[in-house]
Amino acid sequence: MKKTLKKMAWDATLNTDVATEFKNAELTLFLRMGFKQINPAGGAATGTYNDYGSPAATPRKIVKWTPSAWASWKNNFVSSAEKFWKGKFWLINNFSLLEYTYKGQKYIPNISCGFKLSGGDATNATSSSFHHIIEVVRLDKSETWFGSHSRLYDSLDTSSVPKASDSNGKPIFQQAHVHEVGHLLGLGHVDEGKPHCPTNGNTNARACYGVTDKDKNSVMGSGMQLRPKQANPWRLAMKEFTKKGNLFVTSDWEAKLNKYYPRTPTEAANKKHFISPPKRK
């Protein structure tokens, strides 16, 4: 069985045909990003562009994109962001759905979470081809920082830079683009919903990026670490595919950061789990 789901932010495909005694069903989220060059005004080789694209913010020196720099940046963005999010989560099939037969034995698959990112050129394209269109500035070599956000990136956003420090003063590094892709998948900042970062307030406030060391180190904080909560876009897809589950109930399509093998119906009924390959006849 292969099903497809189309949403505003991403598409998803659920494939149970690949499942075997050791291989789970595959759920892949597809994100089509369109990148749009921001070049100096009037066709000049150099110019300025303000932080956040805001007229009131600080201007930074930018240079015109060349075809090779543009292609190289896009390729690096797509490959590194895809690698970061691909194959990192597994969802526990607590509903015993999607049963299949393999070599005469019935199994209940868990869900292996895949990710496919494509990055097209949106400089002259229409928005309908992409889930998200992102503008990108190419910073002059003298610039070390630019005020970017979820729809405006800069050429340094794929670099690993110190974003915050933990309680021992140790720097916490992040590649901004993987954080931004998290937003495009629908994820908010790590501490959203906590008392110091209410969802009806400014969820970009500093506290929303984490207060404890653990949360600061999260990719949706200031770091690069994944948390099970960040599997929510995949959980949402499973909920929509199966019409079962509630994202606020953690045991529904429960997210794990390591592989959980398929189970027989009896094993599933007994709530047995296998994190290493189980013995099969």
């Binding site: 830079v161 915050a164 720097p171």
Partner: peptide, 8 residues
């Protein structure tokens, strides 16, 4: 203010 990144 212990943030290490940003534009200052």
């Amino acid at each position: 203010y212990t943030e290490l990144g940003g534009g200052g």
